[in-house]
Simulated scan of single mutants.
Amino acid sequence: MTSARTFDSIVIIFNPNSTGDAPRLAERLCGKLKDVLSYPVDIRLQPTSHAGHAVELARDAVRGTGDVLVVSVSGDGGYNEVVNGVMQAGNPGAVCAVLAAGNANDHRRIIGTRPLEEAIAEGSVRTIDLLRVHAGQGPDSPAEYAHSYVGVGLTPVMAMDLEKGGKGALREKISVIRTFLKIKPFEIRHTDGKRRRLYSLVLANIPEMAKYVTLSDADDKLADGKFEVIIFPHVAKWRVLWATLRAATQGLGEQPSVSSYSFTTLKPLSYQIDGEVKSVDANIAVRVECAPAALSTLG
């Protein structure tokens, strides 16, 4: 669903220490918006100062009422913080957008349809689904949201290795090889009581990740109330490598889609949510569910 919108204020959040030249991109966007917007609007540049700060800044920017646009100049992880801050505030007039900066922004690459300043000027807002993640939080704790995917097993290990290995094509390839040499399976228990040993579990709201891996054929399904489940079971490592190579070349093809997926951890696990690596203790019930049309966005 799309609608034409104007905004009372626009807040551009960026990391001043970004390796992707976020400060320059944020300032350039600010200048372009002042040129193309035909109505008066308060535009603010808001740098972050520490990890997690974007959650606070986004929440404060949209708290209360009013038509507010929050733009994250970042990679997937920075945008995840902004999305979570906006969702915590609960302002129905809030809109999120992302301008790609940093090492990777799968979300912008997949859903982007036009230059961001043009979309803002046109006010072409649409709604998309989010993934809502419950990982043993108390009843009063807010859920986490993912705009793109949640991954357990191979994906978080690879993400940590890429971070240690540094950026660049050669270093990333070396990191991927190192990941396959040390990858170990993990075990979870499904709601039917059955245990499963897996190498990787990805719950995806977008069809691609990690800049080159095609997870599914789920194009144009960001607002269908479901997400895709991609599983690499515990099999010979060469078969996992083969599946990964297939994902990087021709894609994995059609995958099952669901509106909710639940399991219980049997040991502590690392998981990745939109590029950010987190962890969960043993014996924790984890539930990932689709939040239909939860995020208003443009671009």
Rank of each mutant, 00 (worst) to 15 (best):
R5V: 09
I10Y: 08
I10C: 02
I12K: 02
I12N: 02
I13T: 06
N17Q: 12
S18E: 02
D21R: 14
P23T: 05
R24T: 13
L25G: 05
L25P: 00
R28T: 14
K32R: 15
V36S: 06
V41L: 03
I43E: 06
R44K: 14
L45P: 12
H50V: 00
A54N: 08
L57N: 04
A58P: 08
A58D: 06
R59L: 01
G64V: 03
T65A: 13
G66F: 04
V73D: 04
S74L: 08
G77N: 07
G78Y: 12
Y79D: 03
E81D: 14
E81I: 10
N84I: 11
G85Q: 09
P92G: 07
P92T: 09
G93A: 03
A94P: 06
L99V: 01
A100M: 10
A100W: 09
N103T: 15
H107F: 15
R108N: 07
R108A: 15
R109W: 03
I110L: 04
T113R: 15
R114L: 13
R114Q: 15
R114H: 05
R114V: 06
L116W: 09
A119H: 05
A119S: 14
A121H: 04
A121F: 02
G123R: 11
R126N: 01
D129C: 08
L130V: 09
R132E: 15
H134L: 01
Q137P: 00
S141Q: 15
P142M: 05
P142Q: 07
E144K: 12
E144M: 13
V150M: 14
G153T: 10
L154G: 01
T155K: 00
V157T: 11
G165P: 01
K167H: 09
K167Y: 01
A169I: 07
L170H: 00
L170C: 01
K173R: 03
I174G: 00
T179P: 04
T179D: 02
T179N: 05
T179W: 03
L181A: 05
E187H: 03
H190E: 13
T191F: 02
T191P: 00
T191N: 05
D192Q: 10
R195M: 05
R195F: 00
L198N: 07
Y199D: 01
Y199G: 03
L201G: 06
L201N: 08
L201C: 05
V202F: 01
L203N: 11
A204I: 10
I206Y: 11
A210E: 01
K211D: 01
V213T: 11
L215A: 09
S216Q: 11
S216F: 03
D220H: 15
D220Q: 14
A223E: 12
D224I: 06
G225H: 13
G225T: 08
V229G: 04
I230D: 03
F232M: 12
P233V: 05
P233T: 08
P233C: 05
V235C: 13
A236M: 10
V240E: 05
V240H: 03
A243E: 14
T244A: 13
A248Q: 08
T249L: 09
G253F: 08
G253N: 10
Q255R: 15
Q255S: 04
P256I: 04
F263I: 10
T265S: 13
P268C: 06
S270Q: 12
Y271D: 05
Q272K: 09
D274Y: 06
D274A: 06
E276T: 05
P292E: 10
L295N: 11
S296E: 11
T297M: 15
